[in-house]
């Protein structure tokens, strides 16, 4: 007996679906297509919390993102850095960047270079912002950083002693930090090492996969706001007007999800029809 069309559909080689996804994702980069995007309450909450910080606040811009995670978190990383630069220029914020992974020495350096904030490009480096570089040691280093920043990071990423950087004047422990913004692609120890013992205010930029896991922390007030994955980054870009990579990628993101949803619906229809026809 010849196979029905439903049986044939259930046997489609998955590689055709992969090829279709490649085409759908590539299309927005080749042809200019734009899908609408609504800014979520989560992103609004994140943005408002940062905006409500008093003038002259000291912000620790913590990086804990891998090279692999960077392709997802680039939008958030760049948009937050631009927003902090604006707050630094207009409201006297002080920004201290630090990395918790080996990748997070060079990644913030690349962003600083792209934004013209690298020490080689401007003499402003060190006055209101600095990049301390990679801090090895995970949770243990975070504990010591909280007690005495200079005990684990006596010099910045380029080897300048912290005492020679005006931005670090009067900043010795985690209690001198008003807000920590933490970009991560694999969990954060900041809650256990900084928030619980010292009451540090913490906001996250999380990879999409970690968003459900962090929601209870948001509900419990352990974190003050959360940007979720590529979408969060794209929304922040739209909210701040610093349009960039997130708004380019988000059309591909939406169209890819529409296709995946269509596949899931089609697969379920096929399954139920085959079951009704007693083909399985």
């Amino acid at each position: 007996m010849a196979e029905s069309i439903w049986t044939k559909m259930s046997k489609i080689d998955a590689r055709w679906l992969f090829l279709f996804l490649w085409i759908v994702v590539l299309a927005p980069f080749i042809v200019s297509i734009s899908l609408p995007m609504k800014i979520s309450a989560l992103t609004n909450q994140w943005y408002n919390y940062l905006n409500d910080m008093p003038d002259g606040s000291v912000v620790l811009w913590s990086w804990d993102v891998s090279f692999a995670g960077w392709s997802e978190m680039e939008a958030s990383g760049v948009a937050v850095t631009k927003l902090l630069r604006k707050l630094m220029e207009e409201r006297d914020f002080r920004i201290i960047m630090i990395g918790h992974r080996s990748e997070c020495g060079p990644l913030p350096e690349i962003v600083l270079k792209d934004l013209g904030m690298h020490p080689d490009q401007t003499a402003e480096y060190g006055k209101k912002y600095c990049h301390l570089g990679y801090m090895a040691g995970g949770s243990v280093a975070m504990i010591n950083f909280a007690k005495d920043i200079r005990s684990v990071m006596p010099v910045d990423w380029w080897g300048t002693p912290l005492d020679d950087l005006p931005v670090m004047d009067g900043i010795n422990t985690i209690q001198d930090i008003d807000l920590c913004i933490y970009i991560e692609s694999g969990g954060t120890a900041a809650i256990t090492q900084w928030v619980i013992p010292y009451g540090t205010k913490l906001m996250l930029c999380s990879v999409q996969g970690n968003v459900p896991g962090q929601m209870p922390n948001l509900q419990a007030g352990l974190i003050k706001g959360m940007l979720g994955g590529l979408r969060g980054g794209a929304e922040l870009e739209k909210l701040t007007g610093f349009l960039g990579v997130g708004n380019i990628n988000i059309t591909a993101f939406s169209s890819a999800h529409l296709v995946i949803m269509a596949f899931i619906v089609l697969a379920n229809i096929t399954f139920f029809i085959r079951r009704a026809r007693r083909e399985i």
Binding site: W22, V25, F29, S71, Q208, G209, G229, N249, F253, A256
Partner: peptide
């Protein structure tokens, strides 16, 4: 959770495609 994992993987893939483009 499953939906979020798909979204996360697609985000990574799209970021990579952007680099290639």
């Amino acid at each position: 959770d499953f939906g979020n994992v798909i979204a996360a993987r697609m985000s990574l893939f799209i970021g990579t495609v952007k680099t290639l483009m």
